[in-house]
Nucleic acid binder design. Structure first.
Lengths: 202, 202
DNA sequence: CGTAAACTACACTGAGCAGTTTACTTTTAT
DNA sequence: ATAAAAGTAAACTGCTCAGTGTAGTTTACG
């Protein structure tokens, strides 16, 4: 005992797992509560006992995915560590997030619904955007320290992230390209840093 | 006479205009045939007289948008023109496409539906992907001519497009950021070329 | 002018689905 | 052991929507 969950907790878990899968593959509208109940091997009524309605269930799931998938990305600038090394640490963290199954799942669920019902996904979406802020701050500090020649840290940060996302995120999100291997990820990171520093390094 | 269309052609046009608007703002599933008929000020039966069913109508519209929005982008390499100049021409053409309202509309419609019903948008999507091929060919030829130091033209092409898309496409697609002004577009193109050539120029 | 084609309003079928109700069974906690 | 809490199956309400059928009107055209 202690390990086995109570039945009700297990059922709740089953519902979440099933709903995540359904929402991930079909989106919000195209997923029915009956389907979720069937997949979870739970009666429809039980679904409603745990989650008030479909929207609540959906938001609970995107919230869970969001918390699992996104990290607070603070990157304090350290004048005693080489710029290249710090940039690599930032890139690796970003890469880890972009290539996690959870993050991709979240992105799929959210993008599929953001057009037809923006309010449904608005909260997550806004929080999403902030993920890039850490890099921008770091770039600003590195520039102030004289290590980078940068006039617009926000734009430069976007460029750096674009290089990574363009290779390791957008293709995976839409055309179901496989997530890059460790080796490929390293190459992407190296080439992005290389390009970035060839332009901005002092 | 000659200018006014026959009634039936006018009705068809009205339906297409209305359906385009509805699909653009609500997506495929969330748009009803009744709504389209109402907006077009046409009886529902007339919609069905012109288009067999909802899927056919949807595909006719995405096809039309696709043809309006995408250009065949062939970029033959010319050894007598400076690399930078040629690269700018490529970037400008790409930028023109990415920032056109038609292209953005198409991208929104397709992305919102590609997840929940891939087969519905598959054709357009595949054609989409090919837009980058022209750049890749050009890069390969420029490299062969000794003007660029590039081992992987496909990857380098992706990098170049990523820089442009990351500033002028993805933000507009998802967060309804305004389309960059002419001046901003020029800056994006300049900085992308600059970064690209700082890395790959011989 | 007269007829065929196209359009209209509107009722209707059948399906899907969110959410509820009911009557009953199983699990859990005291 | 037993009563409350949680689960089950299945029928049901009420709504939306794709697509059809019909009977009557308007438009195009020889």
């Amino acid at each position: 005992m202690g390990v086995e969950k109570k039945l009700t907790d297990q059922k709740r878990e089953d519902i979440i797992v099933a709903a995540t899968e359904e929402f991930k593959t079909h989106g919000f509208r195209a997923t029915s509560m009956d389907q979720i109940a069937t997949t979870a091997q739970v009666s429809k009524r039980t679904v409603y006992n745990h989650f008030e309605n479909k929207v609540v269930l959906f938001q609970a799931i995107t919230r869970e995915l969001f918390d699992k998938a996104t990290q607070v990305s603070e990157h304090p600038y350290d004048p005693n560590v080489p710029v290249k090394e710090q940039l690599r640490a930032i890139a690796e963290q970003e890469m880890a997030m972009l290539t996690s199954e959870d993050f991709l799942a979240l992105a799929r669920v959210i993008t599929s619904e953001s057009l037809s019902s923006p309010e449904l996904t608005k909260v997550n979406f806004d929080e999403f955007q902030e993920s890039g802020i850490g890099v921008v701050k770091w770039i600003g500090q590195a520039a102030k320290d004289g290590k980078l020649r940068i006039s617009d840290p926000v734009y430069a940060g976007r460029q750096f992230l674009s290089l990574i996302e363009g290779a390791a995120f957008w293709p995976q999100l839409f055309s179901y390209k496989p997530i890059p291997t460790e080796a490929e990820q390293r190459e992407i990171i190296d080439s992005s840093i290389d390009m970035f520093l060839k332009t901005y390094s002092t």
